[in-house]
Amino acid sequence: MDSQQKQQIQIGFLTVRKHASLGFVGGLLVLNGLARPVEFHCTLPVMPTKAQQLLYGATLDEFVAGEQIGRALLAKAKARPQIVLTDTLAALSVRHLVDSPIAAIDSSWSKNEATLTYPQPSHEAWHRLSVEGYKLLTMHEFASDSKQLESFLGSLSIDIVEPFGRIEGALMEAHPATKAA
């Protein structure tokens, strides 16, 4: 694949993080095949209501990360990513609402950030696959995504973990209160 073709490719990188006092924040970075940024969107902090906390129970993180934040971010993107990668398992549920194949990377950029944690999924039933040395997880109901992801990522040679570091930096720029003291 040459540079011109790579510039036409669009990959979405979605992350959702939880902050102890601010709530959930999410970011979507769309890159081209040369790893250059095309578009970036982030949410304002989302604090679930008490009713949501009580009634969604263990599935609250998935509701907020996937249906609320993931959906809002993907809806805002002018660029239509051919695939979406996330470092947040709980955000995979957004797959029910979009057509693009979505996979979670079983490794994240930085899990040591004290103030931002990952929303947690309520179950562990994933379809697992390995592409270009990366361990990926997709939703069971969308196991057919695997082939598309394999063929798409196999033709690129970009680091698919590194962009989450950029999103984390961008979230901290956009929400300075999330920076560790």
Binding site: V38, E39, F40, H41, T43, L44, Y56, Q68, A72
Partner: peptide
């Protein structure tokens, strides 16, 4: 009735139409 479905969160976004190509 308890309505749980909230409006989608507000977002801010930027696009980079002149993103460097470094070619």
């Amino acid at each position: 009735t308890v309505a749980l479905g909230q409006p989608l969160p507000k977002t801010i976004g930027f696009s980079f139409p002149e993103s460097p190509h470094w070619v």
